[in-house]
Amino acid sequence: MTTFPMPADEAEARALQDVLRERVVLDESGPPPGTGHVTGVDVAYDEERDVVVAAAVVLDAATLDVVDRSTARGKVTFPYVPGLLAFREIPAVLAALEALTADPGLVVCDGYGRAHPRRFGLASHLGVLTGLPVIGVAKNPFTFRYGQPGPHRGDFSPLLDGEEEVGRALRTQEGTRPVFVSVGHRTGLDNACAHTLALARDFRQPETTRRADALCRAALREAVA
């Protein structure tokens, strides 16, 4: 069972981020797109009942067929604080990943890795705790600036904090808004974008995210019924 230290307050949470951030591996390119397994993770909340449900869905990277899936239910034990959302989500996500029987391979989070004010978003946090290669593919750019990428699938522009590139705005489909890709752990940015395109064959979001989102929402409805 992967251990997850739960901070008592915001100050402890930020201090823990500072410690764990030093363990992020940024000098590996990651597995080649279209090979092995890729796993999407996502969470859904019932705020009134303080319930969180996480889902993990393993896909064959070549065919995008489902290989394995799991869910985990927990209680929300940390308040909503921008920049510290991992402390609300990771305990349930870890439990869902550990319930899998298949090798997760590369993990795709609906969130951020390096594209985070403290350079330690959910994708980085999850990667450090599990040792798995992880990328973040978010719907919105958080606080960072970017220029619109070109109109074609595969066009991208840097996601910038000052002069530092913390991720990329990536066009996965023509006629749709870009997604925002960042490195979490044990992957490179070029490879993270290549994986995202390979997983977003027909829709704006990667198929990993779409499948995990649907599963955690269904599991939440069942949990609070």
Rank of each mutant, 00 (worst) to 15 (best):
L20E: 12
A96L: 12
A198Q: 08
L26G: 07
H37V: 09
D68I: 06
L59W: 04
G127P: 02
G184R: 02
A225D: 11
R73E: 14
Y112Q: 15
P7M: 11
C109F: 00
G40S: 06
A115I: 02
A212C: 13
F180P: 00
A219M: 05
V67F: 02
A54V: 03
D190W: 07
V66M: 10
A200C: 14
A192Y: 01
P149H: 03
V41G: 04
D46H: 10
P7S: 11
R88F: 12
A92L: 08
V181Y: 02
V183R: 01
L159I: 07
T3L: 14
P5L: 10
F203L: 12
L85W: 06
R118I: 03
Y112A: 12
V52L: 03
R118V: 04
Q173N: 08
G136F: 04
L85K: 07
N140C: 12
A138S: 12
T2W: 14
D65P: 03
F156S: 13
Q205T: 15
G113S: 08
V41F: 06
R221S: 14
E163H: 13
L20H: 13
V38F: 12
D9I: 02
T63Q: 06
E28F: 04
L132P: 01
L132T: 05
A194W: 09
V25G: 05
G150R: 07
A8G: 15
A62I: 09
R73G: 11
L122E: 03
